[in-house]
Write a protein that binds this DNA or RNA. Sequence first.
DNA 1: CGGACGCTTGATGCATTTCAATCATAGTGG
DNA 2: CCACTATGATTGAAATGCATCAAGCGTCCG
Lengths: 252, 252
Amino acid sequence: MVNQGKLRGPSIKATPLWGSAKKELAQLLTDEERAQLSVIASIARIKKGARIYAEGGDSVAVFNIITGVVKTYNVLEDKSEHINAFLFADDLFGLTEAGKYVNSARAVTDVTAYRMPTPALESKLRRNATLEFHVICKLCHELREAQRHGILLDHHSALARIALFFQLLEQHQIARELATHTIEIPMSRSDIADYVGMSPESVSRTFRTLSSRGIVSFVNHRAVKILDADRLDALVSHPVEPIRPHRRAGTR
Amino acid sequence: MVNQGKLRGPSIKATPLWGSAKKELAQLLTDEERAQLSVIASIARIKKGARIYAEGGDSVAVFNIITGVVKTYNVLEDKSEHINAFLFADDLFGLTEAGKYVNSARAVTDVTAYRMPTPALESKLRRNATLEFHVICKLCHELREAQRHGILLDHHSALARIALFFQLLEQHQIARELATHTIEIPMSRSDIADYVGMSPESVSRTFRTLSSRGIVSFVNHRAVKILDADRLDALVSHPVEPIRPHRRAGTR
DNA sequence: CGGACGCTTGATGCATTTCAATCATAGTGG
DNA sequence: CCACTATGATTGAAATGCATCAAGCGTCCG
């Protein structure tokens, strides 16, 4: 179960565009397609912290994660890092523009991934319409994720951003059938900061606040347990936590 | 030239994934494909301010803009609006998840667009591999745009956000061969605010600041002229405008 | 066991949000 | 055609919350 069938080849999961009303991740590739992609794919093992490719570099391959976590990011003009996305098992990365990578990618944990050379993949796609259709679905999925990230960044309150971030991590874990109420946090505090658009100090302080209010509980620095999901959700919508009940709860 | 051939059918432009090193928008569809899509497309005329579809509604069609500007947005829990993207001529919108629209769409100006019913488009895509490939390219383009939006939102300074926003508008106009140094601003101040993640008041104040510093000049409320592109660019990277030269410019 | 790095905590300043009022604009009906 | 009104834009003053600077603490790896 854990291994979902001993590496049958590249695996892409996403919520379907049409069809089922369920919002669960489904395997987009058929066994046949996975076998076909295996032909052009090699398996890469990347150590934690290693850079996989750099922004602006010539696009040579697209990657599909088997295990581990990857971040894609841009280095801004002022040398700070903006993280676009965290990628997990069954995700695809290596986005290209005019033959160059549009961001850098780095392994957040040790990573195992399929590596598919761009030219080979391109011709495979041109030949196989259904395969291509499945890739479209995955791209739509990633587009939605990017939009959700935008929504997260639009929230001004630190509590709201972190609450959304936890929900995002939770989704990923539920989707990968690790349904526990303990959320694993594979990335560092500063990676989180670079993703949610705050300073590492604020991330730390916000964690502390959530913990002291009894909304979450930190098992250790890399794992949280959600104690009060309702209040966590409430943080997303309400400007301030209604910690002082004697505050007008008017329509805004 | 302006009409690029009197409506030959749906038109999708994006920067290519592979191939040319140029970063210009290219027509992704062949004349043949455009003709094929014409068969399933009808032309919709939407008045400024009208809602085209609503978040959560059943996905019935995908749209391709001929003229005008559209915004896609989510209504957040606190009733505020988060704008995901502004869409222009040759753009595609109607993103779907499990058969439902993932955001709402509204016409920012009067809009003319091709309307393609989802089922018909789906079967067309399944049959025509190359067409599908072209759609993939467009989706990648939109994904990159969403990431750029994320970068914009990550910038904390109001000046930096507005500078990036102007650059974005400029790109769109250059890409559509309206190469002037006067940028048209088709959307309202509050739409801008909802897109860049600030209050309308701050947008207004920031406009005023840019104007009084001589970096831009407002022709009227819906058009700016960039006077000093270098200083505008500088605002993106530097925490504060070097208005006081006696401030350590150290490496941080 | 040591050192480095990441994380936490503390104090201060400042930019932006907010609230509130005025001003401009565009669309409407007399 | 013009006055009128509703809506959006601007400006002002005050307060909040985050970034920043700086120092201390913990932990992981060599």
